[in-house]
Design a protein around this nucleic acid. Structure first.
Lengths: 216, 216
DNA sequence: ATATAAAGTTAGAAATATCTAACAAATATA
DNA sequence: TATATTTGTTAGATATTTCTAACTTTATAT
């Protein structure tokens, strides 16, 4: 069995591993707002339980087992956030704290239903992929929309530019991660594309825009 | 602050107080599946925190503060069970364990939305009333069914007689608290009523029965 | 009314997760 | 390189929730 506290350590470990190559005791202490000696005891325990690899004074690494656990929690967290916003109509600013609690609920049935009610989403609204129930992160080979084909529905999986005006432009179109984009027309002369968004509105994207929309 | 464990003790205490007049250490131990010495330590603590009144070798009583806490948890539990069945379409047999976990979530916003999505229900499907957000059990001004009106759906909120044969009679009809009763016909000569139960089966109640069914 | 049984209590131990104080190692700086 | 700073570790304490073993009080039954 894994405790709520251990789950929180693993989740922090995973998040930190995404941000930096080396994770040290201090990183975890700061991230979880606890003192270093506490972390020290805990990493010893997590090492014994084979969730991480830890040696005195060395960097800490998640094992496959630990990463799997972390991803299962991350899945619950992301599904919960989506559920709270999309199904329960709560605001994005208020769902995080609730999701931090619900992510520890032990019930496959519950999260399966959440997943189902959301239509098995692949991305959360931050564009982060949602791990599968076995703690596997699907590997998407994303391509820029500019290399996409006609009449084949793509999903927005990320953006290559983080220019605020670009993001605002996407926002104004209601284009969030996970949105469906279908290429309906390609202009030869400037490579601009006529596209259909979420099977509803149609618009035209310049090649610049298309090169910055990473799809799957 | 009140811990998850303390919440579970208070909930058990409240449930036991509904079932019997005197609650002793052994009752709690059995109800929570823990040993008596553990309960002994805990009741001392709950007494110090003013949630219960406890003296050595005496019966245990909830204080107003303790009862309020218990009712807030009960509210969360009942709302959650309703939500899981009505909104998430889970089966009644599987929701209890999940609700036992979700009831400890700390978020007024979350439970307010749950309550709202369910249309502010007054009873759970077992016919138990749902406490309000301040831990108050609404007092319904109940009337005997005999004073009810035609074609207006009532809810069974209590019984005026506790005669075993009467209770068994209700039981045989599947009439539990919260059940819907609609008067379809009133016989002038003996005041017996033709009624529809839970929008399903129809039957006839004598005036004696009607005077003992307290509805809302 | 006394003996037996049931229920309750105390004392002390263990697991979990946290802390502070003191010391040690690694890293950065002068 | 030597010193200072940062980071890490150990040891030991505290709080929470649980347990077992031993003893005490209250209730039951002969």
């Amino acid at each position: 069995m894994i405790s709520l506290t251990e789950e929180n350590y693993l989740k922090a470990l995973y998040r930190l591993s995404q941000e930096k190559k080396e994770i040290v005791v201090k990183d975890i202490a700061e991230s979880l707002n606890i003192k270093m000696p506490t972390v020290n005891s805990m990493v010893k325990k997590l090492d014994e339980k084979k969730f991480i690899k830890y040696e005195k004074y060395k960097a800490i690494e998640l094992t496959d087992k630990g990463r799997k656990q972390a991803l299962i929690i991350l899945r619950k967290h992301r599904l919960t956030e989506l559920f709270l916003t999309k199904v329960m109509n709560l605001g994005w600013e208020e769902v995080h704290d609730i999701a931090e609690q619900i992510e520890h609920i032990q019930s496959d049935r519950f999260f399966d239903r959440v997943d189902e009610m959301l239509g098995h989403p692949q991305f959360d609204p931050h564009g982060e992929p949602i791990p599968d129930p076995n703690g596997k992160l699907p590997v998407y080979k994303t391509i820029p929309l500019s290399e996409g084909q006609l009449n084949s529905p793509y999903k927005l999986a990320g953006v290559a530019s983080h220019d605020p005006s670009f993001l605002q432009f996407l926002d104004s179109l209601g284009l969030t991660l996970g949105a469906t984009i279908e290429i309906k027309e390609i202009q030869d002369f400037d490579k601009s594309m006529g596209v259909k968004l979420n099977n509803k509105q149609k618009t035209i994207f310049s090649n610049t825009v298309c090169r910055n929309l990473m799809v799957v």
